[in-house]
Each structure stands twice: as C-alpha cells, then as structure tokens.
Design a protein around this nucleic acid. Structure first.
Length: 293
DNA sequence: AAATAGGTCAACCGCCCGTTG
DNA sequence: GCAACGGGCGGTTGACCTATT
C-alpha cells in the first residue's frame, strides 16, 4: 500500500539521542504533556521524527521507567505471561510497571528464550516441550535466529547507551506494596498544574490525592525489596528459593510490582483460568485486549 | 595486544488499528 | 462508507560492549 512515512525524513536526525535532545524532549513534555507526537519535534525544536520522540520518551526518558536488572519474580512472570500471550510485549509490559515492551522484548530475546531452551523447558516460540533441549540451544546458538552481523571494533565513541552503567551504580530495585489491582500499564498524565502523575487508576485504584504525589517521592509505600537480580533465577520454579533479600543500598528503582509470591501467583492463575475457559482464540484475544481496559 | 566471536539494547521500520472529518 | 491521520506494536537492525582466542 505504501503508506506515507509518518513524517518527512529529510533533514531529520537518526541514531542515538544526544543529551541535548533528551533535555529538549523532556522539557517539552514536562511543559506540554505527551501526545501530538507528529508536531512535537517541531514545537520542541527537535530535528527528529515524531515517532522517534515518542519511542525515546516511552522507552527511556519517562520518569517511571525502571531501569536495570529484571527481578526473578519479574523474570518468572514474563515467562508465564509469554506462555499465555505470546509475543504481545506491550501486554506483558503492562503487567510489569516501569518496564517497557521494548525492554521486555529485548530481555526475552537475549535472556529468557535462551535460558528456556537450555533448560529444555520448552520451545520458546511454541511453548512446547523440547525433546533435545541442549541441541536446540546449541543449534540456535542462543541467538534467536538472529543473524549476527559482525563489525569491526570501530571507535569506542562515547555512547550514551551505557551512561547508566558508567555511573557504576549497580541497578537497584525498590518495590512498593501492590495495591489491589487489575494492573494496567502506567501512563503518565499531566495534571492542570503541569506536574506528572501516574494514571494508576486502573492499576491501583489510587485516589486523586495519591496521584498528586510523585511516585518517586512515595517513600511511604516502600515496603519491601527484592534481591538484586541479574543472577539467574532458577527459572521455572515460581521463585528462586535462594533468592536473597536485598541490601538496601542496592535499591533504587521504583515499582508497584507485586513482590508477594501470592500476588504473583494469583495474577498468573487469574490469567490461566481465563485462558482455560475453553472459549478459544476469540476469548483469548478478548481477554488480552481487556487487560488494558 | 590485536582480532574475532558473542551479547546487549536503543532505535528504526513498517504494518495495523482506532479515531476523525 | 471512506480516506487520512496519529499512535501503538512487534520485528529487526546495528553500534557498542565484553569475553575469548
């Protein structure tokens, strides 16, 4: 059909965002809110495609983004959700506040699919059990069929990509007590006073007062912490038994992620039961769609 | 020390879908 | 009903990093 590109590509910047661009985008959104992506770059003084701005904001600049290691329980939930929903990353991300679909997708492709194959748990595409998991893993090369392009080592130009790492502060996790929920992806909304709040209505039933509060300052909600995660979880057990409680100094990220085993189990079971209602794909799709209602 | 293989993840691309006029 | 538009999504790419040879 050849739809016209979302914007004229002529003269637009591509590639990694510079700190200056980030600042411009952040400043503009803080002042005017999200949306109007097509006209946003021009108004914000950015030589970027609107989609690129949206992506940068959604995946990197949003203040509620939880960067860093995926907790074992998140890991497990991703696996389970993937088994139910397939590659519907945005839906899965919607269950993991602070995580983006892109992050989860990357995490799946680079960690989980490989891990599951090695464990022989299942075919990560079909979720069927593998007969020869080791072979599968080996043949796959842990690369998800991704063709590897090798590049010359090239200049080690400064790259913003790892600037977080350069801080050398290990990613930290801070977890908030879950509110009674049917969780929904958290959307940042603008209030009349140009402050941002999380639209966690559907996610947590928060009051308007709560909304006035920056999530980052909601320290009172901090009730527990989860182990620093980069380590392997044991994969398919619901939680890793030996997963350590954390060290407060390792905590930083904020989340409403339910850390309680029971909550996660409940969430999963809720999904599972719905999927077992024997209503076929139509119901599955309806259910999936309903997740974000 | 240099070259290469393998891994990670930000960003792009193109399609799809809901909304609007 | 239709086309254009805006936004969202999943798949893919490629720059950069680390580990290994």
């Amino acid at each position: 059909m050849g739809r016209a590109p979302c914007c004229s590509k002529v003269g637009l910047h591509k590639g990694p965002w510079t700190p200056k661009e980030d600042a411009l985008l952040t400043k503009y959104i803080q002042a005017h809110g999200e949306g109007q992506w097509k006209s946003l770059p021009k108004k914000a003084g950015l030589l970027r495609c609107g989609k690129s701005c949206r992506l940068r904001w959604m995946n990197y600049l949003r203040p509620d983004i939880k960067r860093g290691n995926i907790a074992p329980e998140e890991d497990d939930l991703i696996i389970r959700m993937h088994s139910l929903l397939g590659n519907r990353w945005s839906l899965i991300a919607g269950r993991l506040p602070g995580r983006t679909d892109n992050e989860i997708k990357n995490y799946w492709n680079t960690h989980l699919s490989k891990k599951l194959k090695i464990q022989g748990t299942e075919d990560t595409d079909t979720h069927k059990m593998l007969e020869n998991p080791q072979e599968e893993a080996a043949s796959d090369g842990g690369n998800n069929n991704k063709k590897k392009k090798k590049k010359k080592n090239g200049g080690k130009k400064n790259k913003q990509k790892n600037k977080g790492k350069e801080n050398d502060e290990p990613p930290k996790t801070q977890v908030y007590l879950p509110k009674p929920i049917r969780v929904k992806a958290m959307y940042l909304q603008r209030t009349d006073s140009n402050t941002f709040t999380f639209d966690s209505n559907s996610a947590s039933g928060s009051t308007s007062q709560e909304k006035e509060e920056s999530p980052v300052t909601k320290e009172s909600n901090v009730v527990s912490e989860v182990g620093n995660v980069g380590e392997e979880s044991d994969g398919f057990g619901f939680f890793s038994e030996d997963h350590d409680l954390v060290n407060v100094s390792d905590i930083e990220c904020h989340s409403y992620f339910p850390t309680d085993h029971g909550n996660l189990q409940q969430l999963y079971e809720e999904y599972f039961q719905l999927l077992n209602m024997d209503h076929g794909q139509f119901e599955l799709n309806s259910f999936a769609e309903s997740l974000l209602d």
